[in-house]
Design a binder for these strands. Sequence first.
DNA 1: GCCAACGTTGGC
DNA 2: GCCAACGTTGGC
Length: 154
Amino acid sequence: MYGYGQDIDTFTGAGMSKIKNHWLMKSEPDVYSWDDLVAEGEGTWDGVRNYTARNNMRAMQVGDQVFFYHSNIGVEIVGIAEISVAAFQDPSDDLGRWSAVRLKPVRKLARTVTLKEIKADPALAEMELLTKFRLSVSGVAQSEWDYILKLAEG
DNA sequence: GCCAACGTTGGC
DNA sequence: GCCAACGTTGGC
């Protein structure tokens, strides 16, 4: 649904399922870069003031994998991070309308994957990164996730 | 509830 | 620095 890839692991007997999504989060590296996240060890993603992005953040679960993307400078996916704390009230918001999450670096990609490359690849034409290009927190389908990882790491 | 004006994002 | 896309605001 909503075009996001989801793995649904059904736990037999328990009658419940766990949905895992993949995401892409943009950051301007001169403000907060991959290296900054690594240096901090864990980062708080707050200050988002767009409802679609917020709703994506609220759908995130601990352990969800995230492509960390550099906008403006580099314009490429640089690494993989993981959600470490699910959505909570954005500390920078007085009204309580907005949410934040926390995330930890997992690893840097063996090589970066540029926006140019993504745009040129028909297999990635449906990515929200392209179809909703101004959205700072977007969903990544499982197939897109796998495909990009293969590009970066073979 | 429509829509014009305005502001922001982000690629180039 | 420019500008296209598009979300948000506010007048009516």
